[in-house]
Design a protein around this nucleic acid. Structure first.
Length: 119
DNA sequence: TGACTGACCAACA
DNA sequence: CTGTTGGCCAGTC
């Protein structure tokens, strides 16, 4: 089986991971990229979501490493992203960032990120 | 067609 | 310790 590492391969993984994010939980781009096997392509993860934002994928549950809703801009309604998360029980701090300490969810892969999470 | 950007993260100087 | 660059993939100009 020739495994051609092309578009769908990476995107598909991102979609699967994002689709498995439980309610009231959030994950990070790096975590997804890590789960995909390429932590360096965290940027591309954002693009995957950009293409998936029109899909059923809960892109609003994907935040950056700081818990900031960096992708809210692409939602059309920046407030919608935070509203959705709050509606799921996600809490935000004074800076408007998701409290990863209580809502960070790592894809079934490596929990190595926990180390970097503790800022 | 070629090059740059883009919702990022981590390593190196 | 802080600043900068590198890297990955795909889409857009």
């Amino acid at each position: 089986m020739k495994k051609i590492k092309t578009q769908s391969d990476f995107f598909d993984k991102v979609f699967e991971v994002v689709a498995e994010i439980p309610i009231g939980k959030v994950t990070t781009y790096g975590a997804i990229a890590e789960a995909c096997g390429i932590r360096s392509s965290a940027r591309t993860v954002g693009w995957a979501l950009n293409s998936a934002k029109n899909s059923y994928l809960p892109c609003h549950r994907v935040v950056n490493r700081f818990g900031a809703l960096t992708g809210k801009i692409h939602f059309g309604n920046p407030q919608l992203m935070q509203d959705l998360l709050q509606g799921e029980g996600v809490k935000f701090d004074s800076e408007g960032n998701v409290i990863l300490a209580d809502h960070l969810w790592l894809p079934a892969k490596r929990n190595r990120f926990s180390k970097t999470k503790n800022l």
